[in-house]
């Protein structure tokens, strides 16, 4: 596995974590996107990619050549990309909704769904 790929993935993860821990809703969502991409790359890199030959059986051949890329992580990552896309869309809608409801961008103040506790035992109740 190439050192520069390892470094690039690590930097992307660090940046993603930094974004996710931001107090701004939009940065948080972008952080999700960056972390998602980086995670896909970790899975992909685990199979030691290096060659250029895709995991496609050539015409005339009956099986994959030994030098071809490992197809399994590719299949995993492919579906992960699509699900990640759906997740991001959902997060964008949710974020927009919360910002409109709360009238601000700070994630820590967008706590409408979890009001502060008043009773020592009973859980706090959301007022309609």
């Amino acid at each position: 596995m190439s050192l520069i790929l390892m470094l690039a993935i690590s930097i992307a993860v660090a940046a993603g974590v930094l974004l996710v821990l931001s107090r701004d809703v939009f940065r948080l969502i972008v952080g999700l996107a960056v972390l998602g991409s980086a995670t896909n790359l970790i899975v992909f890199a685990a199979a030691r990619p290096g060659g250029l030959i895709p995991a496609v059986i050539e015409a005339g051949a009956t099986q994959l050549p030994a030098a071809a890329a490992n197809p399994l992580p590719q299949a995993l990552v492919l579906t992960a990309i699509v699900i990640g896309f759906a997740l991001l869309c959902f997060a964008l809608v949710l974020g927009a909704y919360l910002v409109r409801q709360g009238g601000q961008q700070n994630v820590d103040r967008l706590a409408a769904a979890e009001p502060a506790a008043t009773d020592p035992v009973k859980p706090p109740v959301l007022e309609q």
Binding site: C89, L92, V93, A96
Partner: peptide
């Protein structure tokens, strides 16, 4: 499934 579900999100975002 992909076409339907993701356009559902996209339209919602564009509409928003």
């Amino acid at each position: 499934a992909v076409w339907g579900a993701l356009t559902g999100y996209v339209y919602a975002l564009v509409d928003a």
